[in-house]
Design a protein around this nucleic acid. Structure first.
Lengths: 157, 157
DNA sequence: ATCATTGCAAAAGCTTTGCATAAGA
DNA sequence: TCTTATGCAAAGCTTTTGCAATGAT
């Protein structure tokens, strides 16, 4: 299953950009990331695996992968953007713990329908949506109950 | 209607914090912001209106307003967090144009119900959700069709 | 009289950019 | 060969933090 590479190659070709070893490796690293990732994690992984790679290349490649639909930005917390590989995966929503950052993924079909209605009503071409539920997971909500004197800060976006 | 100020005062008191003129002004500025705002806009507005105020105070106060439910972070784009005043407003979702940043607000009641189901299923205490639809508004989608040679970058979170 | 808050400036992060060198097409 | 891409380091931005002075309670 190397369709993803073909998608990337085609996207690059059609935009007068070049397919380079670095870009190939960055794509591979993004794909093989088990869950969500950020630019730094991608960079470190590439560093370990191949040695020479620059952060600039990672940062310059990420928007290309977003643009051709292979990955998407999931959100922004802790001061960084977080991404996930999406090509060939069903669209899904996230449930995130504000305390420990645990993430659960789940699908919600009804939104696709709503997307169309909303687009029609407000005359938008709706290209996607992002839905995140947030709160506290079992462990964290227990921990918080115990020491309710240490204030929990929800500075999340 | 000064309930918002009372909410803030009470929150501060209960946490051993002090109500200061600066904090009062920052709250006022956030409230009187017609739509969405970011830290810089708030700062400039306060600057114009009162003169002396520091960015640090704005940045230090925003999390307090979030914490006590008077404002919330709507998202992160263009490298900044964006907020909106929510106290006393019905919860709503956003539809955003990726090109010109135009925002439309609309409500979607079905999500509250789903929130409960999801929380039960994954054993989370769900405290809220954030749903954003995105795409292109009428004007922008027209403009993009015309000059489809200038690639549109969706670098949004 | 205390102790939190302010303002200022400096620091901290993440992300972007300039430039010389390397290398796809 | 002609451009685009890379790596490095520097710059850019938003946001955070240290500290002396100020001010709320």
């Amino acid at each position: 299953m190397r369709a993803k590479k073909e998608v990337f190659r085609r996207y690059l070709r059609e935009n007068g950009l070049r397919f380079t070893p670095e870009r190939g490796r960055i794509l591979e690293a993004a794909v093989s990331q088990s869950a969500h990732f950020d630019a730094e994690e991608l960079y470190l992984k590439l560093r370990r695996r191949y040695g020479r790679i620059s952060k600039a290349s990672v940062y310059r490649t990420i928007p290309l992968l977003v643009q051709c639909g292979l990955i998407r930005a999931v959100g922004h917390h802790d001061g960084r953007y977080h991404y996930e590989y999406i090509y060939g995966h069903a669209h899904h929503c996230h449930l995130r713990c504000l305390e420990c950052d645990k993430m659960v993924e789940f699908t919600l079909n009804s939104l696709n329908e709503i997307e169309g209605q909303v687009g029609k009503k407000y005359r938008f071409i709706v290209t996607g949506h992002r839905l995140e539920f947030h709160g506290y997971c079992l462990q964290c909500s227990r921990a918080i109950k115990k020491n309710r004197h240490s204030p929990v800060f929800d500075s999340s976006p």
